[in-house]
C-alpha cells in the first residue's frame, strides 16, 4: 500500500529526515514525511496519512494526531499554489485585509477558496515573522513577499497563473 504512495524518490527524501534523528526515533520524521507527501500530492487524504504511518512503522492514530495539529497540512483539495496572506497584528496594522480583498477580487474567489482553474488557493495565515515587511504574503509555504503593493502582487501572481500553462 504505502509503496504506491511513497514511491522510491519520496522514500529516499523521507529517509534523509529519518537519518537526522537517533536510531529507533523515526517517529521524529513524521512532520517532514507528511510535508514531503503533501508536496507530492498537494493535500493529505487518509491513504496518504496511512502510508506515512506504515512507512515509519507508527500506529495510524499517531500520524492523524500530528497531521491534524499543525496548520501547514492541507486536508481539503487545494490549488497548485498556495497564497497565504498574513493577517496577524503588524500586518493588519499595515492593511493586510486590503491585501486579502484585493486578491479576492483579482482571483475572483473568496479567501479559503481555489480558483476555477485549480491553480491558486487563497488563505489567511498567522504571523510569518516578516512583521517589519508588513504586509507579508507567503507562497507555497516557502517564498516570502514583503511590503506588498498592488504592483508587486501583480508580479507575484502572474507566474503562478501562467507558468507551465
Amino acid at each position: 500500500m504505502s509503496s504506491q504512495i511513497i514511491h522510491e524518490r519520496l522514500a529516499s527524501a523521507i529517509d534523509q529526515w529519518v537519518n537526522k534523528f537517533p536510531k529507533g526515533e523515526q517517529k521524529s520524521a513524521t512532520l517532514m514525511a507528511l510535508r514531503l507527501v503533501q508536496e507530492e500530492y498537494r493535500w493529505l487524504e487518509q491513504p496518504h496519512l496511512d502510508a506515512v504511518a506504515e512507512y515509519l512503522k507508527l500506529p495510524k492514530i499517531d500520524v492523524y494526531e500530528v497531521a491534524s495539529f499543525y496548520s501547514m497540512y492541507q486536508h481539503q483539495p487545494v490549488g497548485k499554489h498556495l497564497v497565504k496572506v498574513c493577517t496577524s497584528l503588524s500586518c493588519c496594522l499595515n492593511g493586510a485585509y486590503g491585501v486579502v480583498e484585493y486578491l479576492e477580487g483579482k482571483l475572483n474567489i473568496q479567501c479559503g477558496q481555489t480558483t476555477k482553474d485549480g491553480r491558486i488557493t487563497l488563505q489567511e495565515t498567522e504571523c510569518l515573522a516578516a512583521c517589519a515587511g508588513a504586509p507579508a504574503i507567503c507562497v507555497d509555504d516557502k517564498f516570502y513577499h514583503e511590503n506588498v503593493t498592488a504592483q508587486t502582487i501583480e508580479k507575484m501572481i502572474r507566474p503562478l497563473i501562467e507558468e507551465g500553462a
Binding site: K60, I61, D62, Y64, E65, S68, F69
Partner: peptide, 19 residues
C-alpha cells in the same frame, strides 16, 4: 493499542479515532 487520539487543536481539539 493506540486507537483514540486527540485530533485538531485548541478549542477544536476532539478525542476520537479520526477515521
Amino acid at each position: 493499542t493506540p486507537e483514540l487520539g486527540a485530533v485538531g487543536r485548541g478549542g477544536h481539539m476532539e478525542i476520537g479515532t479520526f477515521l
